[in-house]
């Protein structure tokens, strides 16, 4: 039996009067690729933010990788994020004035110490060996997303979170990015949680859960 990397029970998040996430019980075993689907506003991003330590739940319990996220201070959450989680956003979110390699090194710097050689090889691994010194503005959408992936995996996270990573990409780039993620996961053996509203993207995962209005409505296991 594979141990669980994420365990939630009665996890709730309210924004004022609006309940973005109704109590959810979720267990994610280590190494799983979980897709989270739902309409916009269904609470799927909220769930991802909670699991990634970017947001705090209003209620319930949340254990990720054996750590009780509710008990961590703000700086403790920051440490958790840099050591445990890699995040890929929909809108690439790179620091605009830093080059591709420096953007990767930024994650290293916050984690421990920067190591330029390692950052370069990470970019080469995602196929960007020729665009190391380019700033985000000079890269295409797919390339930017690959920089984000390099940055997300640079600190060897146990958990990779994707918030609609392919939302802004055309079909070809989407396939490329997903292929890359699959390859990396095979090597690094991290757990993936991917939020998407694209059925095709969700199909890359092992399991898909469906959220509607903050409630887990359906669960579906992929046949592999």
């Amino acid at each position: 039996m594979v141990s669980a990397i994420i365990e939630t029970s009665g996890l709730t998040r309210n924004y004022g009067d609006i309940c973005a996430l109704k109590p959810i019980d979720l267990i994610v075993p280590e190494g799983e690729w979980l897709s989270v689907m739902g309409h916009s506003g269904s609470g799927k991003s909220t769930l991802m933010n909670l699991v990634g330590g970017l947001d705090r739940p209003s209620n319930g319990s949340l254990r990720v990788g054996g750590e009780d996220l509710l008990a961590l201070s703000e700086d403790g959450l920051a440490r958790f994020r840099r050591e445990f989680v890699g995040i890929i956003f929909q809108q690439h979110h790179l620091v605009p004035y830093l080059t591709a390699v420096e953007n990767v090194m930024l994650a290293q710097y916050f984690h421990s110490v920067p190591d330029e050689a390692e950052a370069r090889s990470a970019l080469e691994r995602v196929g960007l060996g020729h665009r190391l010194k380019n700033r985000p503005g000079e890269l295409s959408g797919g390339e930017q997303q690959r920089v984000c992936i390099a940055r997300a995996i640079i600190n060897s996270p146990k958990l990779l979170l994707g918030d609609e990573p392919t939302g802004n990409l055309d079909h070809k780039s989407t396939v490329m990015v997903m292929e890359l993620l699959k390859e990396l996961r095979a090597e690094e053996r991290f757990t993936v949680i991917m939020v998407t509203h694209n059925q095709e993207v969700a199909a890359w995962g092992d399991r898909t859960i469906y959220l509607d209005d903050g409630v887990l409505v359906r669960e579906e296991r992929m046949k592999s």
Binding site: Q108, E118, A122
Partner: peptide, 14 residues
């Protein structure tokens, strides 16, 4: 071999 681990050790030493 693992970069993150290596850098963590280095940072601790520094």
């Amino acid at each position: 071999r693992q970069g993150a681990q290596r850098r963590t050790l280095l940072a601790a030493a520094i």
